[in-house]
């Protein structure tokens, strides 16, 4: 197990380093340095930037200092919003984005697994066809279109939910729904297909031959094995939810990190783009790492193989 974790940890650090380096290389190669473009006419901001990015020093030194600032989680000042550092923006926006992301994943996993399991148990039945049609639709409709539809129907036409912002649980319903539909559909399809495969396994037949009740067979024998592949895609799914949140926050005017990020892209606010990219990448890579570890804990085959060191 330790070897497994170490290996994953090493790959994680390598990936992080590549992203940090990549952002640096891209930023210094931007035609006409991003830090003295006409967009940052403000004197103080200009000085702040130069101090932070050590633009007067040679490139390798700049790179090392940049690495140091990333390690110390100091992402420097924003160009557009004077007197605001990237850290300020992250500190304000990230908790809200994290909240949105958490509820989205929660809804997506619970409903996806339930729908997928039901579909598999009623293979080729009406529930199956219905669930899978809904799932394909869920995958096919881009979340920003779904979000607009939801606002138009449920918020504007019927006024069931508020149109935008992030204040009460009621405000959360539409954004979470818009963001969770895609991942839910993916989870439902995956759960269904792995469940169908697991149900044909000999150990399920064996469990039936023991005379166990269907409920016990499904919960104890089938679901746990069927959910393994679902765990492996959780990381990728999280990436999708995060990138999805960029647009969803924009549409619903939620003051999260995603909204700041999209704004920074539109204003070419490079420090914010860089800082957010690095921060989000690190966050996701750590999440992927945790998912890997969780998988190792869930599957006894991985745990023991590594412990015995073969």
């Amino acid at each position: 197990m330790l070897k497994y974790i170490l290996k994953k940890l090493l790959i994680m650090l390598l990936t992080l380093w590549i992203i940090v380096t990549l952002t640096f290389v891209l930023m210094v190669t931007v035609p006409g340095s991003p830090f003295n473009s006409e967009s940052s006419s403000n004197e103080i901001v200009q000085q702040n930037l130069e101090r932070h990015y050590n633009l007067d020093k040679p490139l390798p030194v700049q790179y090392l200092l940049y690495l140091k600032s990333v390690v110390t989680l100091d992402f420097g000042p924003s160009i557009k919003q004077s007197n605001q550092s990237v850290n300020d923006l992250l500190g304000r926006g990230f908790p809200i984005s994290a909240e949105l992301g958490f509820f989205t994943v929660l809804v997506a996993v619970i409903s996806g697994v339930t729908i997928g399991t039901l579909a598999a148990l009623r293979h080729n039945g009406i529930i199956d066809y219905f669930a899978m049609t809904v799932a394909v639709l869920g995958i096919s409709i881009p979340n920003f279109i779904l979000a607009t539809l939801l606002i138009q129907q449920l918020a504007v036409n019927w006024s069931i939910f508020p149109v935008a912002t992030w204040q009460s649980p009621k405000h959360m319903v539409l954004p979470v729904l818009a963001l969770a539909t895609g991942p839910m559909a993916i989870i439902a399809r995956l759960t269904r297909s792995t469940m169908l495969e697991v149900l044909t396994q000999d150990y399920i037949k064996m469990a039936r031959a023991k005379g166990l009740s269907p409920w016990k067979i499904i919960v104890k024998h089938a679901l746990r094995n069927a959910l393994m592949p679902v765990v492996t895609i959780l990381g990728t799914l999280l990436v999708g939810v995060m990138t999805g949140s960029f647009v969803i926050e924009q549409i619903f005017a939620i003051p999260g990190m995603g909204k700041y990020f999209v704004e920074s892209i539109n204003h070419r606010d490079y420090p914010v783009i860089m800082g957010t990219t690095v921060f989000y990448s690190a966050f996701l890579i750590i999440m992927l790492f945790l998912v890997d570890i969780a998988y190792g804990l869930l599957d006894p085959r991985i745990k023991v193989n590594k412990k015995e060191g073969d």
């Binding site: 790959i11 990936t15 992203i19 930023m27 892209i265 996701l284």
Partner: peptide
Amino acid sequence: RIIEVLYGIPYLLVVILLLVV
């Protein structure tokens, strides 16, 4: 190993970064 490292990079973030530049 190279694939594994690349796989860990959030793909749309890289895409965004590249397009910004």
